[in-house]
Design a protein around this nucleic acid. Sequence first.
DNA 1: TTGTACTTAGTACGTCGTACGATGTACAAG
DNA 2: CTTGTACATCGTACGACGTACTAAGTACAA
Lengths: 249, 249
Amino acid sequence: MTSATETPKPNLLELLWRAAPEAGRGPRKGLTVDAVVAAAVELADREGLEALTVRRLAQELGKAPMTLYTYVPGKTELVALMLDFLFISMERTEVGGRPWRERLAAVAQDNYALYRAHPWAAAASPSRPPLGPGQCAKYEHELQALEGLGLGDVEMDDVLAHLLGFVRIAAQDAAQADAERAASAMSDQEWWEANGPLLAKVLDPERFPTAVRVGQAAGEAHDAAYDADHAFAFGLERTLDGLAPLIER
Amino acid sequence: MTSATETPKPNLLELLWRAAPEAGRGPRKGLTVDAVVAAAVELADREGLEALTVRRLAQELGKAPMTLYTYVPGKTELVALMLDFLFISMERTEVGGRPWRERLAAVAQDNYALYRAHPWAAAASPSRPPLGPGQCAKYEHELQALEGLGLGDVEMDDVLAHLLGFVRIAAQDAAQADAERAASAMSDQEWWEANGPLLAKVLDPERFPTAVRVGQAAGEAHDAAYDADHAFAFGLERTLDGLAPLIER
DNA sequence: TTGTACTTAGTACGTCGTACGATGTACAAG
DNA sequence: CTTGTACATCGTACGACGTACTAAGTACAA
């Protein structure tokens, strides 16, 4: 055993809470973790999560790529920090004293707005994000919207997870629909010219009677293959309806 | 303009429906699209989606990497084919004549079972998969579970999308929880030794009273940070409760 | 003043998806 | 039967990626 200097390699939790031991010797740092994270969020917002590469981010910050590893141990940790960064500063509608349905709707809408503003976050966000300050503040605020409704503690957690899961999948689907529209160089017309004939042959109303009928009706109703905001509005009502028996019992 | 031979480059839809123009000249093909897709599914099942690389898949098939591009235009299309492959052969519980709640529960459970057996699929599956034969058969079957309940066509589509969205997010969360458990080299005990002190300091019951109380209760109730199957069971009941007012009106 | 812990940067490794070009095969046209 | 051509196959290579490693230089502690 040498008396080697253990480079303490900051833990993700320490990083999230900015509990790093505050360096002593050596040159001054030219950046902060926050600056790196903020720039990363801005880049991901602007050009999507797949454009967020270490090289690219370093370039925007005017540093060499490997320099970023002084601030963040790796890309996974960076994304976790980015998420918590969003959670810290997201809108939290105040709902004290309002009926439960409005309270939960506000929670859902705050989350949906967050994911719509930062589409990469919907895909990156796990159901149990690491316990950073943002996640904790968010959890606290959202649980308070569920206080006093006669739910047990475990039920409160179940209900919240259920509600937030709905919002996440709605936001994921919305983001993906947007991305597909943007990525497809084809106009709707071109697409139909290319694929219509085959589809007409293959979507046999005798083989798929219900599918053809319903699919057509849905497509015409939304004037598109998929209407994300409608799906969110519809799903939110259903989700709240589904919580009513538990809450109003 | 030369009279160049346009290599017709198979469309994704043509590929899904196996409507490729059936080559004429040249050496016999050593594989089929189905063989490639089946091997890819098996590899992804066995080692996860990130282990599914073109080189690796080619190796398992005894071919050179670039050879696969004769069968499939690219990796995105391969994943789409893999999904439709699952949809073709998935379990479809027969539910004719049963009450609506049982029917929808069966649809949800068939989907959940699919995603649990093929965890990569939950992440890869969009809300509107391309219209391959599997997706069509699936859509048809699932819509039939909604027939005769007094819903309009557009409502049937909305309801199904809502139900399937719930299943997808539940499966995603389950897969991710499993993956995290597997990836973390730490035991629970090691994790708490490493992170407990910081958490104790930072999870201040005065700052986050509800979060600390509820989080602890939920953690103890499930004996883990997250219990995916419980979340699915709970959420399914809530989701069906939420559809009741629409169906039983 | 000197030693040491640190930030920064350059280079490089192993991975990925896939473009390109050469080689050889088997059918179609002569 | 011969020959031309469309195609399957494969080796090589390119430009990305995350990041390990090393060297250089800086500013505080002793």
